[in-house]
């Protein structure tokens, strides 16, 4: 590999990073509000909420599967976290219930995909429909209000002037990154996504690891649901409507491939930051919702097409 090729690969693999820098320069030039610490905090908090789901979903995609139910899992767990405050006064218990229910959804998805050998797209679409029904049943199509005042502390409490969610997600991100790159199970996840049958031959229990990734994804969707609902102190049945668009847009922008066996959580997080900046820019510039949706849809379609092109060249 000569220097030119190295440079080419390097520049191709770090597109999100450049976009991030360009966006920061662009935004700070158009608006004086951008550099206000309050605004930066809002951007980071948004990134933390979407980033939590994205970290989980990245693992599922690296393992070569797909989860369409992340948005509804997030909505459902948020509804549980808020709704169960009527019965339990402890916030930890409520969050625990939400995370466990997220993991249960993941377990269900994982069992469908591995033990029943269903296609993950359509199996998780089934879960999507079912969770949608459960959400309607639980919330009666209305927003639930959080009763416990302390619940707001999760998103408003500060450590060294930085809000808790940012600390939590930064910590989980680093943990997941090292887990994915340094641990044995992390290596296995990459191996399964790269080639399932060969991984099986090497004695990796592919089913167990796939179920693990789905449960991991469910748990992170739940964390995201908790963070979002604690910020607005309520849970709306419409929470997860656009989560999928932004999260998958970011994952493919970050360079995680739909084929599996390739990618990383840090890349995903940088892409999430890019999209959060973009979201912030939309807010500052006052761009109406339809145009925002064109951008989200466009990014998703464009990135998945580019992902395919990249692999065609590699073969």
């Amino acid at each position: 590999m000569n220097r030119y090729e190295k440079f080419k690969r390097f520049s191709r693999d770090n597109i999100p990073f450049y976009t991030l820098i360009l966006l920061v320069i662009f935004l700070s030039s158009i608006s004086p509000y951008f550099y206000k610490p309050g605004n930066i905090m809002i951007i980071l908090q948004n990134a933390a909420i979407n980033g939590a789901v994205a970290i989980g979903a990245t693992l599922v995609i690296i393992a070569g599967e797909f989860d369409l139910s992340i948005g509804t899992t997030m909505t459902l767990t948020a509804a549980f976290a808020v709704g169960f405050q009527r019965y339990f006064s402890s916030i930890f218990l409520v969050c625990f219930i939400a995370i466990i229910s997220g993991m249960m959804v993941g377990l269900f998805n994982g069992l469908l995909v591995t033990k029943a050998r269903l296609n993950s797209f359509i199996a998780t679409l089934g879960t999507f429909i079912m969770l949608d029904g459960i959400i309607l049943l639980y919330t009666h199509s209305e927003s639930l209000r959080a009763i416990n005042e302390n619940y707001a502390l999760i998103s408003e409490g500060k450590l060294l002037n930085i809000r808790y969610p940012i600390w939590v997600i930064a910590f989980l991100l680093i943990l997941t990154h090292f887990f994915l790159t340094k641990s044995r199970i992390g290596r296995y996840i990459f191996a399964i996504g790269g080639n399932k049958s060969i991984s099986n031959l090497f004695g990796i229990n592919t089913d167990k690891i796939k179920i693990f990734t789905f449960m991991f994804c469910g748990a992170f969707a739940a964390i995201s649901g908790i963070l979002l609902s604690s910020r607005v102190m309520s849970a709306s049945p419409l929470f997860g409507e656009r989560t999928m668009l932004i999260v998958y847009g970011a994952i493919f922008l970050g360079g995680t491939s739909l084929r599996g066996g390739e990618g990383g959580v840090i890349k995903t997080m940088i892409a999430i930051l890019v999209l959060s900046l973009l979201q912030n820019a939309f807010g500052i510039l006052g761009i109406p919702l339809p145009y925002q949706l064109y951008v989200w849809g466009g990014i998703l379609i464009l990135m998945v097409t580019l992902d395919r092109k990249k692999h065609q060249k590699a073969i």
Partner: peptide, 9 residues
């Protein structure tokens, strides 16, 4: 994914 993006558009 393409048709998912299309729903938003």
């Amino acid at each position: 994914i393409v048709t998912l993006g299309m729903t938003s558009v």
